[in-house]
Write a protein that binds this DNA or RNA. Structure first.
Length: 246
DNA sequence: GCGACAG
DNA sequence: ATCTTGTCGC
């Protein structure tokens, strides 16, 4: 089992990481509509951590965009490459997420990740960072609010409300709170790279026919969590081979 | 200085 | 993110 390490030159402190974001922000492409919802494939990525063993597991799950059936899934194991700092999440998980995406045999199509893209203090969250590094269209679907204000969207599925940032970059709409099911807490959608906000919301809704979270993140979440359990067990007892039940 | 803050 | 039992509801 190969363990992904942070590449040479990976930021080691917060100031350097922020400088990297300021540098790469200019490479984000915002004038492309992106893939059409319901066509081709869409890939969900997510990670699970074992801080005790300094390990992060990333999962990438490719779904048929029409049927939402799983087409392919992969995982990658890495060393945690940065501490958790709000606004610098990408530096913690990107090396391992990239490894998982690169090990796919299928073209990922649109990538859906947990967290934010433009809705970020420097307008360069995980979804944008992943997009710039891979060149793929990426959107961010977060479960919790971050640094912006918003009104509560209507109670029905499909209702939205603007996420408004008011900071050093000015006052602007950076995403949308989107109700994916009647009466449930909204998810927070933002553009990552090469996708429009309208398209990002349309994809999110299409990917959430039954539950609050998109099927992409549900699959990716379940996969990386299971993989982390298996790997953590192996690391603590190398004599044991395959995964054990429970 | 204080509070808030994706995963 | 992760730690964790029961519990309310369809």
């Amino acid at each position: 089992m190969k363990i992904i390490e942070a590449p040479a030159g990976w930021p080691a402190d917060e100031a350097t990481a922020r400088a990297v974001q300021d540098e790469l922000r200019g490479k984000v492409v915002l004038d492309e509509a992106g893939p059409t919802p319901g066509n081709g494939v869409v890939t969900g990525v997510d990670v699970a951590y074992d801080d005790e063993r300094d390990v992060v597991v990333a999962a990438a799950v490719v779904l048929d965009a029409r049927s939402l059936d799983v087409v392919e899934k992969t995982t990658a194991v890495g060393r945690i490459s940065f501490p958790y700092v709000p606004g610098l999440l990408a530096f913690r998980e990107i090396p391992t997420v990239l490894a998982a995406l690169e090990s796919l045999n299928t073209d990922p199509g649109l990538v859906v990740c947990d967290g934010y893209g433009l809705a970020h203090p420097r307008r360069f969250g995980l979804a944008s960072h992943l997009g710039v590094l891979t060149g793929l269209p990426v959107i961010g679907v977060a479960k919790n609010p971050f640094t912006f204000t918003y009104e509560q969207p209507g109670e029905r599925r499909g209702s939205t409300a603007a996420l408004v940032a008011d900071d050093s970059h000015g006052r602007e709409t950076v995403g949308r709170a989107l109700r994916t099911q009647d009466g449930v807490k909204p998810v927070f959608v933002s553009v990552g790279h090469r996708v429009t906000l309208d398209a990002a919301c349309a994809h999110t809704l299409h990917l959430s026919p039954r539950y609050r979270l998109p099927e992409t993140t549900r699959h990716a979440d379940a996969l990386c969590r299971q993989a982390l359990k298996d790997i953590s067990r192996t690391l603590e007892d190398p004599s044991r081979k395959g995964p054990r039940i429970q």
